[in-house]
Design a protein around this nucleic acid. Structure first.
Length: 103
DNA sequence: CGTATGACTAGCT
DNA sequence: CAGCTAGCCATAC
């Protein structure tokens, strides 16, 4: 049953992203139940109340470009966090060829 | 209930 | 290669 809203599903998916890996909004949206709701995924993150539970910094754009993140210094904080977790970076973008979360 | 917005993506110029 | 537009979805007000 779909008691949990799309947002809840997003949290569930994002919280399942392993450390050192990242997922694209499109991928999260697809796993959450709506492949085209990539924008809604960002909405959930923006209103995210489980920042300590959901590693929203592990969610990046389809090209690996860091987008979003409303905490700390924004994208800068996000990038630093990802680097610390072992995510490989290509300049200012995540190396999706190696750090993309494959389910 | 209806409108507006946003942490997207893909396509076109 | 970079920038802009249009399309889609769910949430917020």
């Amino acid at each position: 049953m779909k008691t949990k809203s799309f947002t809840e599903g997003v949290y569930d998916v994002v919280s399942n992203i392993p450390k050192g890996k990242v997922a694209t909004y499109g991928q999260v949206a697809r796993l959450a139940g709506n492949a085209r709701a990539s924008r809604a995924v960002g909405m959930a993150m923006r209103h995210n109340k489980d920042t300590g539970k959901v590693p929203c910094h592990r969610v990046v754009g389809s090209t690996g470009a860091l987008v979003g993140y409303a905490y700390g210094n924004g994208l800068r904080t996000k990038m630093e966090k990802l680097k610390k977790e072992g995510v490989e970076f290509r300049e200012q973008k995540v190396d999706l060829t190696k750090s993309l979360w494959k389910k």
